[in-house]
Nucleic acid binder design. Sequence first.
DNA 1: CCCTCGTTGAGAGTGATTCTCACTCTCTCC
DNA 2: GGAGAGAGTGAGAATCACTCTCAACGAGGG
Lengths: 123, 123
Amino acid sequence: MTPQREAVLAAVRSSRVHPSAEEIIRQVRTTSPGIGLATVYRSLDVLVRSGRITELRLGDGAVARYDGNVRRHDHVVCSGCERVFDVEVDLPSSVVSAAGGQVDVDIDDYDLEFRGRCERCRG
Amino acid sequence: MTPQREAVLAAVRSSRVHPSAEEIIRQVRTTSPGIGLATVYRSLDVLVRSGRITELRLGDGAVARYDGNVRRHDHVVCSGCERVFDVEVDLPSSVVSAAGGQVDVDIDDYDLEFRGRCERCRG
DNA sequence: CCCTCGTTGAGAGTGATTCTCACTCTCTCC
DNA sequence: GGAGAGAGTGAGAATCACTCTCAACGAGGG
Ligand SMILES: [Mn+2]
Ligand SMILES: [Mn+2]
Ligand SMILES: [Zn+2]
Ligand SMILES: [Zn+2]
């Protein structure tokens, strides 16, 4: 762990919005102004690989978002403003085994993403 | 519907592999050799907007994949070979309402993606 | 025929991410 | 208290999947 990686990790952990790389870079540069773009992307990769953060591809998948909460949880994405909210729901294991019963794949994980309109985007 | 759009639709519908744009282009060019890249992307966009096909962002989300099956169903992705399989599971509506109860968002849809290793990639 | 307009194909452009490379640190190990 | 090795860095070029621009085309209605 280098100072740059610590700074990136701190930025991801302290954010509540599932930030994109660009948002992370802006945040990190407030305290480490000289950090390079490539270093931030490399740090994110190192942190994801080591399980300290999670990478999310939500919505149209155009940009990666990062999550400092590595406990299993799911997300709700507003289709208006694209904000991402955390939810903790539990998918009955019968659903997972039903899926596993239909294809010859050992399922070991899943991602569940809900979509809808938030209160601001409803009106 | 122009001949190009028909050709793209036919290619997506006849594929069983949730093809990417590149795979679709290759297939379409076997019967319509002159079709342009931009036309294929535009056709895919038209077909998605009109609800005749679905766009999927699976796995790392780097490339879009398309699905001629527009009935609601879910997918299992092999983390070894990245092949995509269809499954029909039903998510209890209590799970959706549990999610909706935790955030102020009117949830109207969800995507559920399972991950695991297929029989080929296990050994 | 002739106009209009939606569509097309080629190629340039875009945006997020990744790669390359010269340079700098931080460790050993004399 | 250097010397060398190796990991890590920042700048900028490169990549990749798409998206845009634009001149040309082509069906359909006067
Ligand atoms: Mn989260
Ligand atoms: Mn499918
Ligand atoms: Zn919203
Ligand atoms: Zn496989």
